[in-house]
Design a protein around this nucleic acid. Sequence first.
DNA 1: GCAATAATTCTATATTTCTAGAAATAACGA
DNA 2: TCGTTATTTCTAGAAATATAGAATTATTGC
Lengths: 112, 112
Amino acid sequence: MLTREEAAQGFAAVGSEPRLDVLLVLVRAGSAGLTVGEIQERLNVPGSTLSHHLRFLAAAELVEQEKNGRSIVNRAAFNRLEALADYLLRECCADETTAPRKGQAQSKTAAE
Amino acid sequence: MLTREEAAQGFAAVGSEPRLDVLLVLVRAGSAGLTVGEIQERLNVPGSTLSHHLRFLAAAELVEQEKNGRSIVNRAAFNRLEALADYLLRECCADETTAPRKGQAQSKTAAE
DNA sequence: GCAATAATTCTATATTTCTAGAAATAACGA
DNA sequence: TCGTTATTTCTAGAAATATAGAATTATTGC
């Protein structure tokens, strides 16, 4: 489960277009991941800039990096991404006193 | 459907703790929404700062603002939040050539 | 050891964002 | 109209982030 700080950091990490691009190519790549060089080929971005963005994504634990020879394989952290996706609406309407929003999951913290 | 730019802007909007706090109280409040003053009470933040953050959230269309007398009611844009939540993993594993990630939805853009 | 490759760190500049006090605007009630 | 309430806009300094070239580190093959 994500803390509020982790969630904000995660959202900030994908809150810039170049970084969102990086994450999306990794998500598409699936569990095989991509090396830094492969990402660089796909996105056509200078190495130092890419490295900076990858560090950001790794710090937010949205991307995992594994060294393999002189390459570094980057993989999307799918569990973390799912947790992020769930985070925003998790407590939906917990304070709602009148009719709850139709079709909206109710908060687990709200009294059943 | 969200463009890449809209998605990045949306994530950036919830990518700061104070702003995530604002969004979360609105999500909890449900469809009734909250006035700026009510948010201010709950979060204990200066009005000018809150106004700045709300503008950010509204620009990303994560929050809708409706004027009501001298108050402004703010509501979470649930549809948009759902779209954001779906965005990250939508194209999961589209480029995967070997075994797809178990339990992971396949991309709509991938050949069926 | 040496050249080549893969990636990071260093550095510097430009831009954006954060924060919040002060002033301004807008709406209502008497 | 006047005072009060609700909110925004103005302003400005501090902090964070973006970008990318140059230098550096690490790994491999010969």
